[in-house]
Design a binder for these strands. Structure first.
Lengths: 252, 252
DNA sequence: TGCTATATTTTCGAAAACGAACATTGGCGT
DNA sequence: ACGCCAATGTTCGTTTTCGAAAATATAGCA
């Protein structure tokens, strides 16, 4: 095996496992620890992997995709919201889960449930939940958006419209003070609307920062929602709308 | 922050990053290296993470799903086949990619191409390829099979039948000596048939072990294929069929 | 063949990480 | 207040890993 080939192999192994110790790589490549060290140093130099004492792991820069960053924003808060939402879903229920970092977190919290029937247009949610043998996970068709793994488009809407589920879990980009639900991509909005229309109980998961964010496309109105889960009590204008429409508010 | 909270935080960080060095965790948790060491040893003891010199990484047991194991079987051979197949695809082409460990590997080798249009029923392929901004990745709808991330079912076939692509890349479970293509799941077979029917050039990627494997469901016949990529020359009976049908054979 | 460049192994002292033992802190119940 | 116990910090000798340098192997070329 050539040096270049070995480098490729090492990178592949690290990408597969997340981390490889020197010893692991020694037995995988059948060369001396020193050679592996030299390889790792070179690969680290060129920025392909991150060097650590005893081995090497995934490159740090990979974390810095905008999407991954968003994922760590407000993580503590989002986790609490996610747990609260997961607690509202009974075993055996059928549910929609749409695009969003929060909804993805909710998916991980649902892994201890049993016999859920899930329809989603989020490829990451599908991957997470398909690990459970007793879940039936159905993914919508459409174009996969590269930045967040969301599936959008007309085909997606048509597909979703075939179902009628117990729960719909949706995230949102922003909520304006008059209660309008806002998003950035009109194709995603269509999908969300389809979910809203084909669901018994709609649960909106939104951390407080969403009340201060503007977005371009109107997705619907908070009055279409049955339950709002948030980390803080929303601003007065929203609170009033919630009361008027008998929306359950859950503070995580 | 108490010990339990810190442990949770450590596990979360490791799951997020794949690997954390002692130093990283020290600055993240603001405790002594020794405390982190103690924590990591406890967590490693209870099997939550894997301990390494200088830090800790994701648990090894995660790799041992049957699917992940299959993925590393014959890896060297499959990589060569994958590279050969990827080399046959021109930039800007449209292609189907179906379920299979080999096809997944092919997807990773396609990452250096430009402007591909891909339709797939493999959730892992979709995840891999959606990382490229200039690709359009379309995923089929249907139920996600937990063991390999394949999407199958009637809806999947209908969806695929809407397209007409340049290339179809398919894997296979087994090939019998009379040239029949075999698989284990009849729902998957339907999808493969749909792909065969809606593709200009069908490329079959199969390592030699497939010629010795039996499977239950007949998916089609090797004569439907335009090109076979394999690591060795197939057995005589197959070679004859290949010649008779003018199938291109590529040895990786 | 002999020369040169590159890749790899071997060797070895320095630096880092390790674990064990001991000291300190901060609840918690009596 | 007192002692108890678990968690954390501190110290120190030991083990592991590191990287530089020298020795060896491999390949290409005159």
């Amino acid at each position: 095996m050539n040096q270049t080939q070995r480098h490729e192999k090492i990178v592949a192994l690290i990408k597969l496992h997340g981390f490889m110790s020197i010893d692991d790589l020694v037995s995988a490549c059948e060369v001396t620890p020193q050679t592996i060290r030299r390889d790792l140093n070179q690969l680290a130099e060129s920025g392909v992997v991150s060097r650590y004492h005893g081995g090497a792991g995934l490159n740090r820069s990979w974390e810095n995709t905008p999407y991954q960053e968003r994922k760590t924003q407000n993580r503590e808060v989002k986790e609490k919201i996610a747990e609260a939402v997961a607690g509202m879903i009974p075993n055996g229920a059928s549910l929609f889960i749409n695009i969003g970092t929060t909804t993805e977190l909710i998916a991980t919290k649902l892994l201890n449930h049993k016999n859920l029937h899930v329809v989603t247009n989020n490829i990451h949610v599908a991957t997470i939940l398909s690990a459970k043998e007793d879940f039936s996970v159905i993914i919508a068709a459409g174009e996969v958006r590269y930045r967040d793994g969301g599936i959008i488009g007309e085909a997606t809407c048509d597909f979703i419209s075939q179902f009628r589920m117990d729960y719909g879990i949706i995230g949102i980009s922003g909520i304006s003070s008059d209660g309008a639900l806002l998003d950035f991509d009109f194709r995603e909005v269509k999908v969300s609307q389809a979910i809203l229309e084909h669901t018994q109980h709609v649960i909106l998961a939104a951390d407080y920062s969403k009340f201060e964010r503007r977005a371009m496309v109107e997705q619907g109105h908070i009055s279409q929602v049955d339950c709002l889960v948030c980390d803080k009590v929303p601003p007065p204008s929203i609170s009033e709308i919630i009361k008027e429409n008998n929306i359950t508010f859950v503070k995580a």
